[in-house]
């Protein structure tokens, strides 16, 4: 249904560092769910348009008028690590 390699690939795309046990469990669980979900693959849907929004509204926009920004201190308040007024990130080049 879904092989281990695919599970690892998807986990990497989603940036989830699954350990070996989680990979195996995920493979079994996802396969079970996908088996259920497979039922819709049998439906004849060629002429059916997709629904992305249930609403039919369009052109909802904002005027180009500035609003108040966050105080610098508040913007950084919840950050796990900051440096020189910015959000700290380590190991980008690693």
């Amino acid at each position: 249904m879904i092989d281990e390699q695919t599970v690892r690939h998807v986990a990497r795309l989603a940036r989830l560092g699954l350990d070996e046990g989680e990979v195996a469990r995920m493979q079994a669980e996802l396969s079970g769910i996908l088996e259920h979900v497979e039922r819709i693959r049998a439906l004849e849907l060629d002429d059916v348009p997709p629904t992305t929004h249930v609403e039919s509204v369009a052109n909802v926009m904002r005027e180009d008028v500035p609003t108040e920004c966050l105080e610098h201190e508040l913007a950084l308040r919840e950050a796990p690590a900051t440096r020189e007024g910015g959000f700290l990130v380590r190991g980008i080049g690693a």
Partner: peptide, 28 residues
């Protein structure tokens, strides 16, 4: 040690199993 490891461990440690399952399913 690396940005990748930061992402993967932060999200592995921070999310519970159902959330990870749904993220995996949706990413797939």
């Amino acid at each position: 040690d690396s940005l990748l490891e930061h992402y993967e461990r932060t999200r592995d440690e921070g999310f519970g199993s159902e959330v990870k399952r749904r993220i995996m399913l949706g990413t797939f």
